[in-house]
Amino acid sequence: MKRTIVFLALMLMTLSYGQETKPVPQITVSGEGKVKVIPDEATVSVSVETKGNVAKDVKKENDEKIDAVLKLIKKMNLAPADYRTQRVSLNPQYDYEKKKTSYNATQTIEIIVRDLNKYDELMEGLVNQGINRIDNVVFQSSKLAQYESEARKLAMKEAKHKAEDYVSVLGQKVGRALTISDNTQSYTAQPVYARFKTMAMESDAAPRETLAMGEITITANVSVNFILE
């Protein structure tokens, strides 16, 4: 009797194992969604760099120019949260031929320009107040989260459409998704580097546009595993 019970138990376990390991028809596809938008704001990184033979004088001159720059920014009614000091340095530089030490002071300010109509006016004012290095300009969108969501939806639609294309000749249908993997790389706005000489203006020169914004592309990538019915 015990042998019969053990035999039946083994049979049930075997049947159960067989059912569990039965392969499920499925397909894995990737999808990509892209949203192109015109940027509506920019992040600008600018610096004041001063040089001289006396560290205290070099630092003082740099501070005075930065003070004028900050007053200009406030005058243009930029929100306090939209500008910050990014880097401050004072470094000695030794000339081995002349056997003399000079000093180089640098302060860098990062500014978010939320109204691009103010961009040219701001950049001209910064140069006039002592900015002598424009490190980079990055165009971006204030609605990034919204456009990222749109790109993800487009990526999922493309993945499903691709799966339907593959199985359309097999007489099968695409069922529910088993797994979804987000393969999107973090969005990074591309910088537009601008040298000082491209921004400098003569005092009697007419205002002019200095950069072309173009478009930015926000991309989402997914990998989806669908059951086939």
Rank of each mutant, 00 (worst) to 15 (best):
M1R: 02
K2I: 04
R3F: 06
F7I: 07
M11I: 15
M13R: 00
T14R: 01
L15V: 13
Y17V: 06
T21H: 13
K22C: 02
K22V: 03
K22D: 02
V24F: 09
Q26I: 02
T28I: 15
V35D: 08
V37H: 04
P39E: 12
P39Y: 11
D40H: 09
V48T: 13
T50G: 10
T50I: 10
K51V: 05
N53L: 08
V54I: 12
V54P: 00
K56T: 09
E61S: 14
N62E: 13
D63P: 03
K65R: 14
K65H: 11
I66G: 08
K71Y: 05
K71N: 03
R84V: 04
T85P: 04
Q86D: 14
V88G: 01
S89H: 06
L90G: 11
N91C: 00
P92M: 08
Q93C: 03
Y94R: 02
D95R: 02
D95M: 03
E97Q: 15
K100E: 14
Y103A: 08
N104T: 14
T106Q: 11
T108C: 10
I111M: 08
I111T: 11
D115P: 10
L116Q: 10
L116M: 15
K118N: 12
K118W: 01
E121R: 06
E121H: 02
E121K: 07
E121G: 05
L122S: 01
G125H: 00
N128F: 00
Q129V: 00
I131E: 03
N136I: 04
N136Q: 14
V137Y: 04
A145M: 13
Y147R: 09
Y147A: 06
Y147H: 15
E150C: 00
A151F: 01
R152D: 01
R152Q: 04
E158F: 01
A159C: 12
A159H: 05
A159I: 03
K160M: 06
H161I: 04
A163M: 07
E164H: 01
V167G: 08
S168R: 11
G171F: 11
G171P: 11
K173Y: 09
K173S: 13
R176Y: 15
I180N: 13
N183M: 13
T184K: 05
Q185I: 02
P191W: 04
A194V: 12
R195E: 06
T198C: 00
M199V: 12
M201E: 02
S203H: 08
E209C: 03
A212R: 03
A212G: 00
G214A: 05
G214H: 05
I216P: 10
T217Y: 09
S223F: 04
I227Y: 12
L228M: 06
L228H: 02
